[in-house]
């Protein structure tokens, strides 16, 4: 039940001005919850699949991702 509440409370926030579109978050997301948009910027496109593990935030070299 705790993960349910985490899922509801936490969002993956992406600062597109800081994102350089390297694709690391997309490639290593265990749930394929991220993708690159037409401008080559990371987007949180699968919030329903996302388990809020925070790997994207930890591996983002641009410090552009925050789980909050």
């Amino acid at each position: 039940m705790e993960s349910r509440s985490l899922k509801e409370e936490l969002s993956v926030l992406i600062d597109v001005d800081w994102c350089k579109g390297c694709g690391i978050c997309v490639a290593f997301c265990p749930k394929q919850a991220l993708s690159l948009d037409e401008h080559g910027k990371a987007r949180w496109t699968g919030p329903e699949d996302c388990v809020r593990c925070g790997l994207c935030q930890m591996r983002c070299p641009d410090l552009a991702i925050e789980l909050r």
Binding site: D17, K20, G21, M58, L63
Partner: peptide
């Protein structure tokens, strides 16, 4: 963001450079 100087972002490291991961 509490620990970084946001005014200098985006940083100058190349896209995909690992240094930002280490800083994080």
């Amino acid at each position: 963001r509490r620990y970084i100087r946001e005014r200098f972002f985006p940083h100058l490291w190349c896209p995909g450079c690992g240094h930002g991961i280490v800083m994080s």
